[in-house]
Design a protein around this nucleic acid. Structure first.
Lengths: 334, 334
DNA sequence: AAATTTGGATAAAGCGCTTAATCAATAGTG
DNA sequence: CACTATTGATTAAGCGCTTTATCCAAATTT
C-alpha cells in the first residue's frame, strides 16, 4: 500500500497535523519532533500526495502550455526553454498542440481546467481573445508569449515584431536590394513584421515588389507554403532580387524554390528568415535571419506567470524583448 | 465560487451520488432524473474536478513522458505523435527533458509520481533499468519507446535497429561503396545499428573502414559531434567514400564537414542518416536516411500503455516496427 | 502562590468526489 | 393478497491532505 501521512504520524508518534506542519514548515515544532518526523518519512519512504494537497486548495504545480505545433522547431525550442525554467521552479508543464484550430484550443483548455492547472501559457497562434478573457474572469493566471495583443491588458512576453521586420528590411536595403518580395502566412505577428518591413522600405522610397500572396489556409507545413509562394513570385518577369520570409521554415521553402528554378542563393536571390531556430544554421546556405531570443522568452514568460501566482508583480505586465539580425550566408550584396 | 457537484445536486433536486452516477454512467438512473441533472450541469456550467476524483482512486488522465531533449527534432516529432494519440484518448502528457542525465530522470520521476500520473512513457536515452524496475514493482504502468532492452520484460515499442543498420549498409554496398565509416554516439540503439551494419558488410566480405570514433560525452549538440568526427575521418589518407551516421543530426554534421573540406555530397562522399526527421528533407542535399515510423511509434506506445491501464493486454508486450530506407540525394553510385 | 503567557502539539472539519450499503416504492409472482 | 424482485435514488464513509481552533504544560510575570 501507498504510505500516507497517517503512517508517518504513527511511526513518529505524532499527529498528522504535526507531520503536515513539518512538511510545510508551518507552525511551531520542537526540534526533536521535527527530527523524528523526518526520520519516519525517510524510514517509510514517504512521498506526499500532491493530489490531496491540491484538493485542499494548494497548487497543482502544473502549468498548461498551448502551442500551435510541437513538431515545429520554433515551438519545440520555445517549449524546451519553458520546460527548463519550470523545472527549476518546481513546476511541470503539460503541452498541447492546437494546430491553430479553435476547437482544439477549447477542448484542451477545458481539460486542463478540470485538472486544475495553476495557470496557462499561450504561445502564439491565437486570433481570438474570448477564451483568454474568460480565464481571466475566472481568475486563472495566464500569460502569453510570442504573440502580442495591443490594446489588451494581459501578461505577455513578446518581441518587437515591427522592429524585427524593420531590421530585416534595412539589412536588405544596405545590401543594395530594391526589388524585394515578402513571403508570409496571415497571422497577427506576421502582419506586424510586414508593417515594420514596409515602413523601412518607405523610408528609402521603396515598396514591396509584389502584392503579398497569402496562402488561404494556414497549412501545417510552412515549408511547402514557402516553396509555393516563392515559385509564383519567381515566375513573373522582372523578379525580385531578395525575399523576406516571416519565419525560417518559409524561408527554407523559398530557398528550395529558388534552387529548383536554377537560381543560386544568395548570388541570384537573397533570402532573410525570421526566428533563428536551430535549423537556420543547418540548411545550406545557412540562413540570415531575424533572431528571436527563444531561451530568454521561455524563462521570462515562466517567471512572469510565477510572479502572478505569488501576487508579487502588478498584474498584466508586458515584457518586450528585441530581435536581432543574425547574418549568415543566404544574403549578399546585389 | 467554483461550482461543485453539490451545487448541481441542489439545482437538480437530487443527491450528489446521483449526479456522480450520471456523470460516470454508473448505477441505475431514471430517464427524467438524468435529464434534469444534465440540465443542471449545463445551467451551472459545471466542470468536474479531476483532482477530487483522482483522490478517490480514479485516474489522473495524465501520463509522464521522459525524453532526452524536446528541442531535438526526432523527439519533438515523437512527442507530438504521442501527444496527438493521448488527446484522442482523453489523456494529457507532461513532458520532461532529461538531457541523458540520471539525476534529472530521478527528479522528474519523483515529481510525477507525487502527482500520481497514470503511467510513464520512456523514450530512449535510458541506460539504467533500475528506475524502471522500481516503478514496475510499485505497479505503475510504464512503456518504453525507441529503446530496446533485450532480455528484459517490459512494454516496449521499438524499431529493429539491427535491421536499420543492415539496410543502410546494403544500400551503400549496392551503390558500389567499399570504404565506409561510421559516425555515432555511444548509446545502446546505435550499438545495435552498428552491429547490423557490420553484419551486412561482413556478408560482402567488407568491414568498417575506420575504428569508430565515439566522442566521449554525449554532447547535447549532435550536429557538432558529427562534424568533428567526420572531419577527423576525412583527414586521413585513403578516406572513406561513404559514411553511415546513426542519426540525422550526425549525418548533417558530417555533410557540413565534407563541404568544408571541399568535397561534394554525394559525388565525393555519400552519407546515409537515420531517423528520417523533418530536417532530413530540409537540408541540402536532402538526406538519404533510414526512416523510423515516428507517427506509428507514438500511436503504438500510447495504445500500449492504455491497454495496460485497462488490463486488456497481457503485460510486457514488445511491439517491433520495421525501419525502411528513404532514398534522397545524399548518396550516389561510386 | 496565583495569574498570565507561550511553545508545542492535537482534534476535527472540510476540500469535491466515488462507492458500498441501504432504503423506498413500484412491479412481478404464485 | 402477502411476498419477493427490481428499479431508482439516498446516506454516509472515506480518499490524503491542510488548517483553524483548542488544549496542555511549562515558563514567566505579578
Amino acid at each position: 500500500m501507498k504510505v500516507t501521512i497517517y503512517d508517518v504520524a504513527k511511526e513518529a508518534n505524532v499527529s498528522i497535523a504535526t507531520v503536515s506542519n513539518v512538511i510545510n514548515k508551518k507552525g511551531r515544532i520542537g526540534e526533536k519532533t521535527r527530527k523524528r518526523v523526518f526520520e519516519a518519512m525517510e524510514e517509510l519512504n514517504y512521498e506526499p500526495n500532491v493530489i490531496a494537497s491540491a484538493l485542499m486548495g494548494k497548487q497543482t504545480k502544473t502549468i498548461g502550455l498551448l502551442i500551435p505545433d510541437l513538431a515545429n522547431p520554433f515551438f519545440s525550442e520555445l517549449a524546451r526553454s519553458i520546460e527548463d525554467r519550470s523545472h527549476e521552479l518546481g513546476y511541470n508543464i503539460v503541452i498541447c498542440s492546437t494546430d491553430y484550430q479553435e476547437d482544439k484550443e477549447d477542448k484542451y483548455i477545458g481539460l486542463l481546467k478540470q485538472k486544475r492547472v495553476d495557470g496557462f501559457i499561450f504561445a502564439s497562434g491565437f486570433e481570438k481573445l474570448s477564451r483568454v478573457e474568460e480565464l481571466m474572469k475566472e481568475d486563472i493566471p495566464i500569460a502569453i508569449v510570442a504573440r502580442d495583443y495591443p490594446n489588451f491588458s494581459v501578461n505577455a512576453v513578446v518581441i518587437d515584431d515591427y522592429m524585427g521586420g524593420y531590421i530585416a528590411a534595412e539589412h536588405l536595403i544596405e545590401k543594395g536590394h530594391k526589388k524585394i518580395s515578402v513571403v508570409a502566412v496571415d497571422i497577427y505577428s506576421n502582419r506586424e513584421r510586414i508593417r515594420g518591413f514596409n515602413d523601412a522600405l518607405s523610408k528609402h522610397h521603396l515598396q514591396i515588389a509584389q502584392e503579398i500572396d497569402f496562402i488561404g489556409e494556414i497549412e501545417k507545413n510552412h515549408m511547402d507554403v514557402g516553396r509555393k509562394v516563392a515559385e509564383r513570385y519567381l515566375q513573373c518577369e522582372d523578379r525580385a532580387t531578395a525575399m523576406f520570409a516571416c519565419n525560417d521554415l518559409l524561408a527554407i521553402g523559398a530557398i528550395q524554390a529558388a534552387k529548383q528554378a536554377g537560381l543560386k542563393v544568395p548570388k541570384d536571390l537573397s533570402v532573410v528568415g525570421f526566428d533563428n531556430t536551430n535549423i537556420a544554421s543547418i540548411v545550406d546556405p545557412p540562413l540570415t535571419t531575424v533572431s528571436q531570443p527563444i531561451q530568454l522568452m521561455g524563462r521570462e514568460v515562466m517567471d512572469l506567470i510565477i510572479s502572478v501566482f505569488k501576487g508579487e508583480r502588478e498584474d498584466n505586465v508586458r515584457v518586450t524583448l528585441t530581435p536581432t539580425l543574425v547574418e549568415r550566408e543566404s544574403t549578399s550584396e546585389l
